[in-house]
């Protein structure tokens, strides 16, 4: 059972010293900031390594940071065998929101990534079926962005009052 600091040290030995950083807010739990290009290899290592064994992806969420003009993806991982947790965060610019998909590693990510694409607009690379899941296919815009403006009519039906 490892704490987040120990997990970061272990990962630094394998991936090099300055790729990953441990951050924390004023309250709540700490997280590891991961560059977008590394996330797929890192996830495979996290799942398969015998000291880490993160076999369950609990949750994957998409976020929009308006001030920094970035989109973020948060991964919460848990190991059922060794009973430890870790949180990973990835941030990408709004103009090029591409993040490698982890669907081949944890199958739960399939629908979670489709939802992140639908709500926030993160494009997941090599996802087998990246289509809208909650909203209709011809909806315009990504609603959970902070600067989203609702469309006035949808197929002739007023969306407002």
């Amino acid at each position: 059972m490892k704490k987040p600091e120990e997990i970061l040290e272990y990962l630094n030995q394998k991936f090099g010293e300055d790729q990953l950083t441990l951050e924390r807010g004023d309250i709540g739990e700490p997280w590891i900031l991961v560059p977008a290009s590394m996330i797929r290899d890192l996830s495979k290592f996290l799942r398969d390594d015998s000291e880490l064994r993160f076999d369950m992806l609990m949750c994957l969420s998409g976020l929009h940071y308006l001030k920094e003009e970035e989109l973020g993806v948060v991964y919460h991982l848990h190991s059922t065998k060794l009973d430890h947790y870790v949180t990973l965060k990835v941030r990408v610019p709004v103009e090029e929101p591409e993040v490698p998909s982890v669907e081949s590693i944890w199958k739960t990510a399939d629908w979670h990534e489709r939802e992140a694409w639908d709500m926030v607009g993160v494009v997941f690379d090599k996802h087998p079926n990246l289509k809208r899941i909650l909203l209709p296919d011809d909806w315009i815009g990504h609603p959970l962005r902070k600067d989203y403006v609702q469309q006035e009519f949808y197929q002739g039906i007023p969306t407002g009052e």
Partner: peptide, 15 residues
């Protein structure tokens, strides 16, 4: 959901 619901139809009598 009347205020911020972008995907909610405000009353079925619209259809």
């Amino acid at each position: 959901y009347w205020e911020h619901g972008y995907h909610v139809l405000k009353g079925v009598d619209k259809v």
